[in-house]
Design a binder for these strands. Structure first.
Length: 567
RNA sequence: CGGGGCGUAGCGCAGCCUGGCAGCGCACCUGCUUUGGGAGCAGGGUGUCGGAGGUUCGAAUCCUCUCGCCCCGACCA
């Protein structure tokens, strides 16, 4: 491809509303342009990378035995009403009405459509298992779209759905997809991690997220330094710490005045006690009444874990009136001692001796509080995992990293097949709901994540498998006949088996080098009069600092060699 | 949905408070010089100042409404 003929509008400065690195660089590199909030044009360069991701995904899905289909983006409301999600899904579901007054939605995911398809076509266990996937545009009317392709409203997703006669078969496929996803992200050249994930409303043990590790990731991931345990912090379990032996050193309980000191920081500073000696008491309102949740002052409650521990359906922080009514004190002075509510304490609380809690009266706290001696609680794991917390699987410790969720695999069970009547006849002729799994990959997000993970101050550093071109040739001066002759020769020869971009613009060298660094093609071949005097051209890998000079006649072979080695 | 902010040339922004020729940098077009890391000089302005209404002799500037975008929070999973 000739740069001069390509719609490749690079920018020196990113638009002011671009926040994250991948979005800024994709804008600057002329890969994407915004059309509306969370909705983007993909320009030629951007589309090339998207196609590379798609090709890898398609290849591995096919190899794993899945079959590609394409479902409509516009879905009749009936299907969503059948599954119950027309009412459950909320405002993220963009609804439309056609000229006849019929209701539709733009598909944010396709369980309903695929289940409808399969229930019509599959009758017997002999036709199972089945794994169908598509690569298609989805629409979710996000409250706050942001971060470019990372969290758009319209986005390209690979979604696969599998159908099984037995649990064993569904679990086999889950493992099969787990392996396929690992191969996909490996082939993309990304540093990623599969982690145990929240199963959410659907429940069940089986859910993994695939995260590309990057400091800018939206999710926090806990992984063990010693074994292979890894989980989203939303879910990560923590090995309970040892309760300190003997409470003999416990000093007598005492009440102190703490006028206006409510937060952990304020109380800690006022009483000159480290936050790890404070016990934070939060009052929650659940469908089973008010409860108190305790966590050490330097830790955070994880509401999802709390919800699971309580086995309640709804959970939210109690309002001021409920707090005052139940504790006898304004918000900020609640404590577990003599509290007439069920008390659930994180394991971290058990380690506190001579701690500080609210006194359940305004402007007062209790000091020298010792769990067990001064209050009773049910001890549970309800805090967010942090660096150096104990691994739940071994004796190691956890570390927290940030990740971008690019894939999610899920065992669905019979949620959709049951509500929508997708069943089959088993060997005994008995009708049973089909067991399902679903497996998603964000295509655009994967491309964006690759940039978050691979860039420097000058621009993108594409992992070779996702690069829009394999190689970029930079003729330094297009008005020099020899430069152009050599460049064109290399371009033609290399172009036989590589995707090559030649920057044939009549621009100064500096401009071309800056753009080359920005768009991040893995290998750059610079052809200039200076080196041509020695019969040489320059090869440079985008990711490395060094350059190598090779003879003109060896350039194509040398380039092929570098590309093969994964330049 | 609550709070805050922004909207002026393709991009980044100033001007608004205190009403009086619509500006700056980059990009773009022409010419000359230059030519290995975002060149120099000279010339060129490409604009519905988001939109509508109002106040005023006069509105980018003040007022009202409205649309879009961004940030924080809430919501969602």
């Amino acid at each position: 491809m000739r740069f001069s003929r390509m719609l490749l509008p690079t920018l020196k400065e990113p638009p002011s509303d671009a926040e994250v690195v991948s979005q800024r660089l994709m804008m600057r590199a002329g890969m994407i342009r915004k059309v509306a909030a969370g909705i983007y044009n993909l320009l030629p360069l951007g589309l090339k990378t998207i196609r590379k991701v798609e090709a890898i995904v398609r290849d591995e899905m096919d190899l794993a035995g899945a079959q590609e289909v394409l479902m409509p983006m516009v879905v009749p409301s009936e299907l969503w009403k059948e599954s119950g999600r027309w009412d459950e899904y909320g405002k993220e579901l963009l609804r439309l009405v056609d000229r006849h007054g019929r209701e539709f939605c733009l598909g944010p995911t396709h369980e309903e459509v695929i289940t409808d398809l399969v229930r019509r076509e599959v009758r017997s266990y002999r036709e199972l298992p089945l794994n169908l996937y598509q690569i298609q545009t989805k629409f979710r009317d996000e409250i706050r779209p942001r971060f470019g392709l990372m969290r758009g409203r319209e986005f390209i997703m690979k979604d696969a759905y599998s159908f099984h006669a037995t649990d064993e078969s569904a679990e086999d496929e889950y493992r099969n997809m787990h392996a396929a996803y690992s191969r996909i992200f490996e082939r993309c050249g990304l540093d990623f991690k599969a982690v145990e994930a929240e199963t959410g409303a659907i429940g069940g043990r089986f859910s993994h997220e695939f995260h590309v590790l990057a400091d800018t990731g939206e999710d926090a991931i806990a992984s063990c330094r010693s074994c292979d345990y890894a989980a989203n912090v939303e879910r990560a379990e923590i090995r309970p710490g040892e309760a300190p032996g003997g409470s003999s050193e416990g000093k007598p309980l005492e009440r102190v005045n703490t006028p206006g000191k409510r937060s952990v920081e304020e109380v800690s500073a006022y009483l000159k006690v480290g936050p790890e000696r404070l016990i934070k008491t939060l009052i929650y309102e659940t469908d089973r009444g008010l409860i108190a949740a305790l966590v050490r002052g330097d830790r955070e409650i994880n509401e999802m874990k709390l919800k699971r521990a309580l086995e309640c359906a709804t959970l939210r922080l109690a309002d001021e009136a409920s707090v005052t009514a139940s504790t006898g004190a304004p918000v900020g002075f609640a404590g577990p001692v003599n509290l007439k509510l069920p008390v659930y304490a994180d394991f971290s609380v058990r380690e506190v001796r001579n701690g500080v809690t609210g006194a359940n009266e305004a402007d007062a706290h209790l000091i020298n509080v010792s769990p067990e001696r001064d209050f009773r609680a049910v001890y549970v794991d309800i805090r967010n995992a942090a660096d150096n917390d104990g691994c739940p699987r071994c004796n190691g410790v956890l570390e927290i990293k940030r990740g971008i969720e690019v894939g999610h695999i899920f065992k669905l069970g019979v949620k959709y097949s049951y509500s929508m009547g997708a069943s089959f006849l088993d060997e005994a002729g008995k009708e049973r709901p089909i067991i399902m799994g679903c497996y998603g990959i964000g295509i655009g997000r994967t491309a964006a994540a690759a940039i978050e993970q691979n860039h420097d101050a000058a621009g993108i550093i594409w992992p070779a498998p996702l690069a829009p071109f394999d190689c970029e040739i930079v003729p330094v001066n297009v008005n020099d006949a020899q430069t152009m002759r050599v460049s064109t020769e290399i371009y033609d020869a290399l172009g036989k088996d590589c995707d090559v971009l030649i920057d044939d613009r009549d621009e100064r060298a500096g401009v071309k080098f800056k753009d080359a660094d920005l768009i991040g093609i893995p290998l750059r071949i610079t052809v200039g009069e200076r080196n041509l005097k020695q019969g040489q051209v320059e090869l440079k890998e985008r990711k490395g600092a060094g350059v190598s000079l090779v003879k003109v006649e060896d350039a194509v072979e040398a380039a092929r060699g570098m590309l093969k080695r994964g330049a």
